[in-house]
């Protein structure tokens, strides 16, 4: 083929001409992709990235929402380090998360395995188990508050009294309050993660079980060596989302105990809310938010880092 006049040597060559067309095609495809992604990108920018960056900037100022922000440098962070309630809420949040999440995963997996079997009324029980997860946390808290009353007026304690068991101070003792909140949180979320695990279980090919059966594997071996590894991507998803959600616990404790007694169930998000919207300390609330963000970010990074070791792809 003759050299094309007016074009650089590289493009006048047949392979150069092809490369130019290819790069045009790629650019056109990029533009189309960007156009389709645009609504999501705009949403992400407006509702996630800009607020996150703004929150970071706000953490260095003193701002009461309506007055003019004044730059205070690291003062909010210095205050935070000395704030005993901050450390307490961080501890409470970690306690809630690190106790509830493993329990949640184990129980919802067991429930999923149970309801994955050919049982009579299986769909009915699946629906019953899923039902609490569609209720709002506020409604769940309002339902459980009278049930967990510490006198015999509370339904659970009333029932326990038939067996001669003394009333348990579910929501009024610092020792019992957090376990009670964890229990209610579990009750609400179990159904949701059961459905996630059900989907994971149903995605496992029968051939693995048949092969294991031919090899003479017992139920325990099948569970630990076939089922668990094969649903590990599901477990990883459940672990990550459950942990992030747990670190953001707010509505349940806000209604059930209002963070009490004596701050025993006060959580980090609740403390952020109080500082931002009840005490109008936006700068300090932003600093607290950033700590929460960093905590969740580190935990997610660690999870991702170690996922190679146990997530079977």
């Amino acid at each position: 083929m003759d050299r094309l006049e007016g074009f650089p040597a590289s493009l006048s060559h047949p392979s150069g001409y092809y490369l130019m067309n290819k790069s045009r095609m790629v650019r056109a495809e990029h533009r189309a992709a960007l156009l389709f992604l645009l609504p999501n990108i705009i949403g992400f920018l407006i509702f996630s990235l800009i607020p996150t960056v703004s929150s970071f900037a706000l953490s260095f100022v003193d701002w009461g929402l309506l007055d003019k922000p004044s730059f205070t440098g690291l003062a909010n962070y210095r205050e935070l380090l000395k704030d005993s309630i901050f450390w307490l809420t961080l501890k409470n949040t970690a306690l809630y998360s690190f106790v509830k999440v493993p329990l949640n995963l184990v129980l919802s997996l067991l429930l999923a395995i149970l309801l994955n079997k050919q049982l009579r009324g299986r769909n009915f029980f699946r629906a019953i188990a899923f039902l609490p997860s569609v209720c709002s946390s506020v409604a769940v808290a309002l339902i459980w508050a009278p049930l967990l009353e510490s006198s015999n007026n509370g339904l659970i304690n009333h029932m326990l009294s038939f067996f001669g068991i003394d009333a348990i101070p579910f929501l009024v003792s610092p020792a019992w309050a957090m376990p009670s909140v964890i229990f209610v949180g579990l009750w609400k979320e179990l159904g949701y993660f059961m459905v996630i695990f059900l989907a994971g279980l149903q995605g496992i090919s029968r051939s693995y079980y048949e092969a294991a059966s031919i090899d003479g594997a017992n139920a325990r071996t099948v569970f630990f060596n076939v089922t668990l590894p094969l649903i590990s991507p599901t477990t990883f998803f459940a672990l990550t989302t459950s942990l992030i959600g747990s670190f953001q616990i707010f509505d349940l404790t806000s209604v059930l105990t209002k963070g009490g007694p004596a701050n025993a169930t006060n959580t980090l998000v609740m403390y952020i809310y109080q500082n931002g919207f009840q005490f109008f300390r936006m700068g300090y609330a932003s600093a607290l938010s950033l700590i929460l963000f960093v905590a969740i970010f580190i935990i997610t990074l660690v999870q991702n880092h170690y996922s190679d070791k146990w997530v079977f792809n």
Binding site: A145, E149, S150, N153, L256, K258
Partner: peptide
């Protein structure tokens, strides 16, 4: 006083009692 008096979220319970 009832044990639940220490619970800040018991306004509805007070009315019921």
């Amino acid at each position: 006083m009832p044990k639940d008096s220490v619970n800040a979220g018991n306004t509805e319970a007070l009315r019921r009692w």
